[in-house]
Design a binder for these strands. Sequence first.
DNA 1: TTGTAAGCGTTATCAG
DNA 2: CTGATAACGCTTACAA
Lengths: 344, 344
Amino acid sequence: MKATSNSRVSGSRGRPTVLDVARIAEVGASTVSRYLRGSKSVSAAVSERIAFAVRQLGYQPNELARGLRGGSTNTIGIVFPQVTNLFFSNCVQIAEEEARKSGYTVMLLTHQENPEIQASHLATLQRYRVDGIILTAAEGTDIESFRLQAGNIPIVALDRPLWKECPSVLLKNRDAGKIATQHMLSHGHKDIVCVTTSQEMYTFKERLIGYTQIMRQAGLQPRVLTAVDYQQLIPEVTRFLKSADRPAALLSLSNMATFSAVSAAKGLGIYFGKTWSFIGFDDFDFAPLLESPLTTVRQPAKEIALAALQLLFQQMAGPNSKVQAHIRFAAELMLRSSCGCLFP
Amino acid sequence: MKATSNSRVSGSRGRPTVLDVARIAEVGASTVSRYLRGSKSVSAAVSERIAFAVRQLGYQPNELARGLRGGSTNTIGIVFPQVTNLFFSNCVQIAEEEARKSGYTVMLLTHQENPEIQASHLATLQRYRVDGIILTAAEGTDIESFRLQAGNIPIVALDRPLWKECPSVLLKNRDAGKIATQHMLSHGHKDIVCVTTSQEMYTFKERLIGYTQIMRQAGLQPRVLTAVDYQQLIPEVTRFLKSADRPAALLSLSNMATFSAVSAAKGLGIYFGKTWSFIGFDDFDFAPLLESPLTTVRQPAKEIALAALQLLFQQMAGPNSKVQAHIRFAAELMLRSSCGCLFP
DNA sequence: TTGTAAGCGTTATCAG
DNA sequence: CTGATAACGCTTACAA
């Protein structure tokens, strides 16, 4: 099984290689390589022969070999908690599209807030020699050991910070908490209570701080409704709703808490926008279509993802530059009626 | 710059290689390789030394080299229209988790229903030598040329079929259309109209066929409301809602059409469940929380994704077996009140 | 059980 | 402008 001459057979594993192309085009392998890379030092005649051979063979360069040889894989890793969450799926969507436009391919991994899975994902991405990583760190990550494990691979933190020097793109979470609280205040509310699935997670904690600050400033008592998960949160909110001695304003800190709060209210037949008020976190398609159209705090997911990707590319380009960029995006209040707006 | 002896320096590109590990462990490279692969023909003493060296160096095997040498990359590609769509994001989520459990890593690509992007994605996945692909083909794909371009790489179609022999996991779309229509019939409706963003896309077309069949069987006149996109569909539905000479039943064929229909109804202050009825397609968290809790046709996204992955693994295992598996999942009616249920 | 050597497909280097 | 050659890091015969 040697030299099948100029027949259309190919590399040992069925797929044609540069050598096959070279043979058919009657040139050397390196010339094919040059042509493929778009080097202009390839004569027109030769270019044409190579193009023909490539087409005839349906040749696809082996990126593994390329990556092995060249050192870069044109691959980035995206590590998110999960992707069944509008915020993250929007981020993935935009990041994938943009990465592709720049010639990069995305490896997507989700850690479900499990630091061990996350660690294994980091290792995986290193083994595949991705050129960079966009990461939303799992709650409970040991940042220092993670940093150590990450070594020199460019990383951009999205949604949650990592170590100090690590470039990050975050929401102005405190401000988000503030504007929502202030808005409730502007509606004349005194009893404003926060609803959240956790007081520990970075983003929630930050939003909570914003809320608390404004409450304190106004001489009001902050109050938080929590539970271990959004399912447990429903009865919690229900209990509050039933026991409150007067109507109050509810402020959600996450899309899950929004679900729980709306769920509880629905169960009790409570309508948001007149006596009771509500502001949800994270906007979504159906928010305007709920019985009482939901006022929400909107995160600019696409801008965030885009910024993260650009930061990553910068980081990948300047290996020594140690770009220290921390980008913060403002949240936007989507005014609808659940907060009490549009009811003159 | 030669032979830095037994110092802790490493491969040419900063990262340690098997050779570095071998040197420290004072064994040959192949022994390290064997150890890493879990071969039992490695003595305990040597194993220990290697383990130590690996840990000391933070060695991560280069999957590029592995793939180049061994022929398989432990990588699969997932190509979806987009991931900002609960159905697909659920699929991605479960597929990624399961793939990981089997030691595979996912490359995620989205084509936005653009066959050209899709073609380029296919090429990309081939260049990265993924072991298999899960694909939801773009509307308008030239199946035959796609098949040709795909060559021998294992592919499983999800949500939409490809060529006849290509394993696929689909929803029983016609049945889905049928059960929804029949349910409307059981509520005594005569005027049942379909709402969809397209009559061309495979899934919608199929669901429409189911609907039409049942309508014909019942001696009723099928009727469809369409528009180029879900935004355009809103005024379309609104017009219908206003001009109808009597209340009717609306049947959505997709989550986007559901949004449009609910939007139109909301705009008109029309409530679903008493005189007007509605069944949405694709279930979602907030469906029970709308003013009139939405009855929906639910697709078992996780089961579908799981089945697709399993089929793919089968396909990857048996290169010659030409497994011809076509799995169909039944849709499930999530009875709530928008269809008229729960109103005795 | 262990080590040596060849080769996976590319590209960079270096002569021609 | 072009072609041979040597790596890139790993695994798999084949020897020892």
